[in-house]
């Protein structure tokens, strides 16, 4: 199954993400965001970055998770290539991000927006539309 697709948007970055379940949706959205901005990876190694996110509603958790990853990426100069969930509930999660050090990206994500955001059930699982301010 295709993991994501970058869609047309006049000014920002719009991504459609597909997955069989919520955990995979979060993982694919993370990969989509960081692949879309084209990291300049330096060195061969990986490191682990702990991440936590909590939200009042189920859908916003994906936005909060991605915003947290953008914050961590910005302050630690790294990109994320995978995620391993330690706990995953409707309103909160804890995970380890698999990180690689970077010297910048081709594009900058300022934040993940709630605009036009949706998660929908499909025959094969879930799909989400996400708009990033760039």
């Amino acid at each position: 199954m295709k993991k994501y697709e970058i869609l047309e948007h006049r000014a920002d970055l719009k991504i459609k993400v597909w997955a069989k379940d919520r955990q995979e949706l979060f993982c694919n959205a993370l990969k989509a965001a960081f692949e879309a901005i084209e990291p300049n990876i330096v060195g061969a190694g990986t490191r682990v970055r702990k991440i936590r996110a909590a939200s009042e509603d189920e859908n916003s958790l994906l936005i909060d998770f991605l915003n947290e990853a953008i914050y961590l990426s910005d302050v630690n100069n790294e990109t994320y290539i995978d995620v391993k969930f330690e706990s995953f509930a409707r309103h909160g999660l804890a995970a380890e991000l698999v990180a690689r050090p970077v010297k910048g990206f081709k594009q900058e994500i300022k934040a993940v927006t709630h605009h036009g955001f949706k998660i929908e059930k499909t025959e094969k699982g879930l799909e989400a539309d996400i708009i990033f301010d760039i």
Partner: peptide, 22 residues
């Protein structure tokens, strides 16, 4: 990002209905 996250859960308390959470 911090303040959007702070405000969203309080919208109903303030009686604010939005067409777009952003």
């Amino acid at each position: 990002a911090d303040y959007v996250k702070k405000m969203i859960p309080k919208l109903s308390e303030w009686g604010i209905e939005l067409n777009d959470k952003e």
